[in-house]
Amino acid sequence: MQGSTHGIPIDTDKSSPIIVDLIYRLKIRDVMTSTILSCRPEQTMQDAQKLMKDNSITGVPVMVERRLVGIVSMDDVINALMTGTMGQPIEKHMSRQVIVLEDDMPLSFGISWLDKYRYGRFPVLNAKKELVGIITSRDIIVTLLLEMNKEIERFEEATSHREASTSGFHLEYTTRRFDFEMAGRLSTETKRQLKERDLPPKIIRRVAVAAYELEMNQVVHSAGGTVRVVYDGNQGRVEILAQDTGPGIPDVESALSEGFSTATEWVRSLGFGAGMGLPNTQRVSDAFSIESSPAGTCVKVTIATEERSNP
């Protein structure tokens, strides 16, 4: 496919090869939702409306056996409501000219067809013309975000590897309040780096636990901050420094005792904020210090990377 294809908002000749590759490499089947709700032509518009409402969707394929005969959308429901014909069978209201996609088409088709036809969804057929899924712009957005995230992570990893010297490394991540998505990235990357250097699994786990708890603490309790991990191979130790921008811990001693928590209900519902974060961190550390004021909290952890035979 040459030049800018109809409906794709980027120039496929000049754009980043990673992104262009993405929309051609991904197939419609990788993006579509495969659990398909459907209705039969003899059901009423009320049935269609209930199905849409119960499942928060705006269109449903109409099927006879495994054959697609039409599609009924929220627009059709609104028209039926306005004309008082909600009791009529769906077949009187559905669109019969259904634009479909095939499951092995590249995603670029899906993107351009959404623009070309202005429908909210397309049924997806396989080579045997059977309905195998449905694709919406939401499906496309979600998949593209996940895939782009993967590509960027790969890119960032390649960059950080180049900076890392053969023995030591230095990683720093920024956390934001309630950004649970990002938390865990530092500890996962730290674990990977330490594994590459063949450190004992027990040590790696202790470092990863400390880094994760400190990241989580910032996400749950602070206005945000940074967590830095420095591994010094010559000194044989990992240092973790977590520095946030407030509001500080009013009672540090209580925060260090297991079970004490100031987390909100919804944070707890995710399985965090049980008051074990700082105690867990302290338990896995060889040296642990904490300083807190309303301007911020700074936690410093040191973990020796060689299991010492003499104390």
């Binding site: 649970f180 938390a183 996962t188 674990k191 699994p201 990863a208 636990v209 994760y212 399985g271």
Partner: peptide
């Protein structure tokens, strides 16, 4: 074994191996 069905569960599972 859990009912915590979110991305952080995977992060934690990864950390503990």
């Amino acid at each position: 074994i859990t009912i915590q069905s979110h991305k952080n569960t995977i992060a934690v599972a990864t950390l503990v191996g």
